[in-house]
């Protein structure tokens, strides 16, 4: 990629960031993600802790265990727990909206006549989505840190932050899982030439089909091999590897090893990005 293309890519990224940050639909999704992370990561567990051992959210866990999960030391686990289920689904919606709406609104057509190459324009859009996902993950980390420190202070517990390496590993894994789903959503948006079908198919796939296949896979060895290569399995297993195995959170798995999950997720990120660029470069915008 020469200097001119890098400049075009930078221009395209700046343009996409401008329009993404002013898009209320995107902020609604961020808000939903943060609210869900907060609710399932802290609010329900804290209510369970405060109201005793025998309740729905505690699932039999003792108060000490519940409190430990609310402490700053547990941030690495908390920030990846919600990713395989609703985090991935929301990221997929972001990708599908960003790519798919460009066809209905005619904005891809307008952008492609503004000067950047198609590779630069689509690359800029993918880069903007990635930056957005990174910011979303950062906001999650900051929120979780703030809430866990507040709970620790409220409950008179010592504030012990997790090791930086654990935090970095968890953050990186979480970013990769969200990035994978966002770029897969982007690719489906490109293939479907619109957001509605992309969002619908994407959600059904990520929330329903993969779970059903995993259910069938436990009965049929051939299917199990296939499910091990699916994005949901890879994302769930990567989160599982960070947490140390399934912890009862839907979607968190130990179907494949952490290393294999990491490679599979990274492969999906690369393939989705390259496929989206290739398809857009070759497509007629009629």
């Amino acid at each position: 990629m020469n200097a001119l293309n890098l400049k075009a890519l930078g221009n395209s990224t700046a343009a996409e960031l401008l329009r993404l940050r002013k898009w209320s639909a995107i902020w609604v999704i961020v808000g939903a993600w943060l609210a869900l992370s907060l609710s399932f990561g802290y609010v329900f567990n804290y209510v369970a802790y405060k109201t005793g051992d025998d309740n729905f959210a505690g699932d039999g866990a003792g108060n000490a265990q519940l409190l430990a999960e609310l402490m700053p030391n547990a941030i690495p686990d908390v920030i990846v727990s919600g990713l395989p289920m609703f985090g991935g689904a929301l990221a997929m919606v972001v990708g599908a909206l960003v790519a798919g709406n460009g066809f209905g609104w005619g904005t891809w057509k307008t952008v492609f006549t503004q000067g950047p190459s198609r590779s630069a324009a689509v690359g800029g859009s993918l880069a903007a989505v990635s930056i957005f996902i990174f910011a979303m993950m950062t906001a999650t980390l900051v929120l979780c840190a703030g809430v866990s420190v507040a709970i620790a202070a409220t409950e008179g517990q010592s504030i012990t932050m997790p090791a930086l390496s654990d935090l970095a590993q968890s953050f990186g894994a979480g970013f990769l899982v969200l990035e994978m789903w966002a770029l897969l959503g982007f690719l489906v948006g490109v293939l479907a030439k619109g957001p509605a079908l992309a969002v619908g198919l994407g959600l059904v796939w990520s929330l329903v089909v993969e779970n059903l296949l995993r259910g069938v896979g436990s009965l049929l060895a051939g299917i199990e091999t296939v499910t091990e290569a699916l994005p949901g399995t890879a994302g769930g297993s990567l989160a599982g590897a960070i947490i140390g195995g399934p912890n009862g959170t839907p979607g968190v798995l130990d179907a494949i090893s952490g290393e294999r999950a990491l490679i599979t997720v990274a492969a999906y990120v690369l393939v989705a990005a390259i496929a989206a660029v290739v398809v857009m470069r070759r497509r007629d915008l009629a």
């Binding site: 005619g106 057509k109 006549t113």
Partner: peptide
């Protein structure tokens, strides 16, 4: 395309902007 300005088959813009 960097040296062309075009309006083709109606304007295509982001409705929320």
């Amino acid at each position: 395309t960097a040296r062309i300005g075009a309006l083709i088959e109606g304007p295509g813009f982001y409705p929320y902007l």
